[in-house]
């Protein structure tokens, strides 16, 4: 049946998403990830309870784009900062937003131990297989053979090692309540990513411990690939290395119908 009221609002800006333009490049999926977080916080009525922790990397200015309280961490230390906040304010909704260099390289110790301790906050992990802010250097998640400004002949795994699968690693830790990987390369996967974010925040609300949604993302500028082709590149090259799976779902979330 068609809508009877032609002025009915069916799509609007989430209240938690600040009314400002972002600095992100055209075709970058950070904006999508931001919007999904804002939508979920709106839907769960958590905006006034939310405290975000911004990383160092391309999303260093994430705090400008959310209409909720925020702090800005040192590179890789967002999980430590979030731990400090959540331990003092256990009834607030605390989340970090981190890229692959921040989370999987310099912040490896902080993320692992936050998960192991079962810190009850939510991590949004943006994996685009490259350092964006500094101009396209190799990340711990850079694919074998992928060319970056610091692996100009392609990532040689004999010299530079192999990609790190963070969701898989963290899911082995007993403190983790919800660990999944999703992708932002098409509308269907974006919807799935949003549902996963909702479950991650539900896990936090229910005190189920550490929750993380890894999101495969694009970096058209530093990949040197146009935006639409970048989305295809995620599907064709990243998904085979980083499977889109539920790695750990606390049993009390499994039956949740949203």
């Amino acid at each position: 049946m068609l809508a009877t009221n032609p002025t009915q609002v069916v799509f609007k800006r989430p209240k938690t998403l600040a009314q400002v333009p972002t600095h992100y490049c055209p075709g970058c999926t950070h904006g999508v990830a931001h919007r999904l977080i804002a939508e979920v916080l709106d839907e769960m009525g958590l905006r006034e309870k939310a405290i975000g922790v911004a990383p160092v990397g391309c999303s260093v200015f994430a705090y400008n784009y959310f209409d909720c309280d925020f702090v800005e961490a040192a590179h890789g230390r967002a999980p430590a900062m979030a731990t400090g906040i959540k331990r003092v304010l256990p009834d607030r909704t605390v989340f970090t937003y981190q890229g692959d260099g921040d989370l999987a390289s310099i912040g490896m110790a902080e993320i692992l131990h936050a998960a192991a301790r079962g810190e009850n906050f939510t991590v949004v992990f943006i994996n685009n297989a490259i350092y964006g802010m500094t101009g396209g250097q190799m990340a711990p998640t850079t694919l074998p053979g992928q060319k970056t400004t610091s692996s100009p002949s392609g990532r040689d795994v004999e010299q530079m090692g192999f990609p790190i699968r963070m969701a898989e690693i963290l899911s082995t830790l007993d403190g983790a309540g919800y660990i999944v990987r999703r992708s932002l390369h098409d509308p269907k996967n974006i919807r799935l990513a949003k549902k996963a974010l909702r479950l991650a925040f539900e896990a936090q609300q229910r005190g189920l411990g550490f929750s993380m949604v890894e999101m495969l993302s694009t970096c058209p500028t530093n990949w040197g690939i146009p935006p639409i082709e970048s989305l295809r590149w995620v599907e064709e090259h990243m998904v085979p290395v980083y499977p889109l799976e539920d790695f750990k779902v606390s049993p009390s979330l499994a039956g949740l119908r949203l």
Partner: peptide
């Protein structure tokens, strides 16, 4: 009150940083 043994001094001071922000 909160006591936490951190994984390193790097983490400890950043936990302090976060908690101080409250």
């Amino acid at each position: 009150r909160t006591f936490l043994q951190a994984e390193s001094e790097v983490a400890a001071i950043n936990m302090v940083y976060g908690a101080a922000c409250t």
